[in-house]
Every structure is written in structure tokens, then in C-alpha cells.
Design a protein around this nucleic acid. Structure first.
Lengths: 192, 192
DNA sequence: CTCAGTCAGGTGACAACGTCAACTGAAAGC
DNA sequence: GCTTTCAGTTGACGTTGTCACCTGACTGAG
């Protein structure tokens, strides 16, 4: 019925789902290999058959999130009914939305654990290349790299400020992440 | 010779220094209360006389860093020989420099542990108010909040990208954090 | 069909960690 | 001088990541 490979893949998926669920619910501290195994219906030692250690599991979760974001951004870019500015706003807000709805996952996406996890870097790069392509349509190939790097960095920062609740300070007058993205994109559009 | 209060203050400082040192050397994982105590010349239980738990100790370290940055930014703002743009660039680059030279400390500065650590928030706020004052001189009181929020967020993001080595990617053509700050400040200056 | 090999998974064990309760001894206040 | 306070120590406990070893089912060659 179920081959060994199929069963292993199912367990791996179950472990990944369980870990992502725990991350969402209780943050990094809640992700213990014992609980991950329990939720996936296996023992505490089972994860070691699929991930080298706890960090590798977390990296796999971050990679997954980047890939999904890449898919969504790609779809935005391919949509002929949207202007460049709209594509940009949509992509940036999608990234920032992860920070709002899944702050712990967001932190994992932007944390760079030691050991150079190539898979995470590759997934992040693909997603970011989508932005590069959009910006190039706005300010030209030459300046695109500089502005895209700034754009990604800024979006990352906006999300980070939001994650740590620092934008809620009354000092900013109740500013929203969308307003910041709009301001940013408007400044870049003015550059063309 | 040494009163009890003096001795306690000295121990507290030694614990803080030891923890900051360990954070610099080996990251968050290297900061164990046992090792912190050992480096400070006390036992593993001593930190609990000065900090409620491990997290409180880390928050104290982050607070210290924010206060120092606030001092430096304040000095920049008070310098009559600098233009607003120069003040801005100086302050932002100082923040980003922490990300470069002390990445682990930087993460602690922008991580928001549960329990609303008011001291950290207050120290961060003071530092950020300095930027607000500078930007107000550039774009006026009305728009200052929006642009300052964007500025702080972006600087945070630039530093975060740098911390996770994502700016080193050849996709960005070897762009530096200084170039990004320059681009950002130039766009804001153009707003006035 | 058989049988050795592979490998996902389980279990016992260990060291390290954060944390607490109980204790000690010296400074502080009366 | 006596009691109180409190920084610091120590023993202990529960939890965690990780490893070594074991087990049993699937697999592929003969």
C-alpha cells in the first residue's frame, strides 16, 4: 500500500507541519523536537531521520515560506492587469503580512543560522529576483539593483518594526505598514 | 572598604559585561547563566539576585546598547557643523554599524521578548526621537513622522539584511549599506 | 521465493541548561 | 550587641538536544 519512501515523505511533511504549527502558536521556544514528534505521531528521535538537527528543521520551514512568497510574487508579476507600482506594493505587502500574521515564522525567514543553509538562501533569492524584475521596469536596469536592494531591505525593516510592535508607538501617530510601503514606492516611482 | 551596595553594583556590571562579551563571541546560544556567572567571578545562581531571569539580562544588554546609540545620535544632532543630511547619514550608519560589528547584539536590540520590557522600549524611543527631530528640519513637522518611521524601518532592514549576509549576494552587485543609506536620504531630501 | 541489506522509527542515556528552595555569612540598622 | 537584610552558594529538579543502540518492516538480488 504505502512504500517506504512514501511513508517517509509523509512523516517528513507531518514533522514540518507540526513544527510550523508550534512555531505559530508559541514561538521558537515552543518548538521542541519532542513535541514536534508527538504532534506528528512519532517519537522524539524520529526527526533525526529527516533533519540533521533542530536548526535544519527550522531552516526547512523558513525555506518553505520563502518559496510560497516567491510563487505569489511571481503570479503578481505575471499579471498583465497590474501596473508596476501595484505589483510592487502587492509583493511588499505580502512579505510584510507574513510579519503581521506569523511573526515567529517571519523571524525564522530572516534569521541566518550558522552553516550557510544554501536552500534557504536560494529560495529567498528567487523571491527577491521577482522584485528586481519589477523595479527594472520602473527605473531601468542600471539603477534597479540599488533600488531593489533598498526596497527589500526597507520592507524587511518595516516588517521587523511591526513584529517588535515598535510601529504602534504613538510617536508615529498610528502609521500603518501600508502607508510606509506607499511612501516608499511613491519615492521610487518619482525616480523614473 | 566596599559597602554592600557598591559590591552589588560591581557584580551587576560584571555580569552585564560578561554576558555582552559572550554574546559577541558566540551568539545567543553562548550566553548561559552558568558561563556568565563564571566570567563574572560568581556562581551560577548569582545572576538571579540582579535579574529576574535570563531574558531580563538580555533586555538589559539591549537597553544599554540603545542608550549608547542615543547618546551618539544626540551628539550628532547637536553638532552645528553638520547639515541635516549629514546628521541623518551619520546616525543611520551608526545604527547599521552595530549590525555589522556586533550582529548578535543588534538582534537583541530589535528582538521584542514577551512581557513588555519597558526599559528597552524607552531607550529605543529616545534614540529614535533624535531622528525625528532631524527629519522634521528637512521635510517639516507634518510629514516628519511618516518619513522618520520609514527611515528607521529602512535602516533597521538594511542592517538586518547585512546581518544575515543577504546584501553580499552578487545579485546586488556588491552594494554597500552606505550606498543604500545615501540613496534613502537623497530621496527624502528631494521631498522637501 | 528467500535472504541479506537498508533504513525509518523507538528507546535509554547523558550532558547542559534555566530555575527554584534552602542555606550561609557578612553588612546594615536599631 | 542583636536582629534583620540580602548578595552569594549549593543541591536539586524538570526539560531539552543529541547520540548510540536496538527493532522491525520494506527492498532488491539471487
Amino acid at each position: 500500500m504505502t512504500s517506504r519512501a512514501e511513508s517517509a515523505a509523509a512523516t517528513r511533511r507531518a514533522l514540518l507541519d507540526a513544527a510550523a504549527e508550534l512555531l505559530d502558536e508559541g514561538g521558537l521556544d515552543a518548538v521542541t523536537l519532542r513535541e514536534v514528534g508527538a504532534r506528528a505521531g512519532v517519537s522524539r528521535g524520529a526527526p533525526y531521520r529527516h533533519f540533521a538537527d533542530k536548526e535544519s528543521l527550522l531552516i526547512a520551514i523558513g525555506t518553505q515560506a520563502w518559496e510560497q512568497l516567491g510563487d505569489r510574487t511571481h503570479a503578481l508579476r505575471a499579471d498583465p492587469g497590474l501596473s508596476s507600482g501595484e505589483k510592487l506594493r502587492g509583493g511588499l505587502n505580502a512579505l510584510i503580512a507574513i510579519g503581521r500574521t506569523q511573526p515567529h515564522l517571519y523571524k525564522v525567514m530572516f534569521s541566518h543560522p550558522p552553516g550557510d543553509p544554501a536552500a534557504l538562501a536560494r529560495a529567498a533569492q528567487r523571491s527577491q529576483s521577482e522584485f528586481l524584475a519589477i523595479v527594472a521596469g520602473l527605473v531601468g536596469e542600471q539603477a534597479a539593483r540599488r533600488y531593489t536592494a533598498l526596497l527589500i531591505s526597507s520592507a524587511n525593516g518595516i516588517a521587523g518594526m511591526q513584529v517588535s510592535s515598535q510601529l504602534a508607538d504613538e510617536k508615529w501617530g498610528g502609521i500603518t505598514t501600508e502607508e510606509l510601503v506607499d511612501t516608499l514606492v511613491a519615492m521610487i516611482e518619482a525616480q523614473s
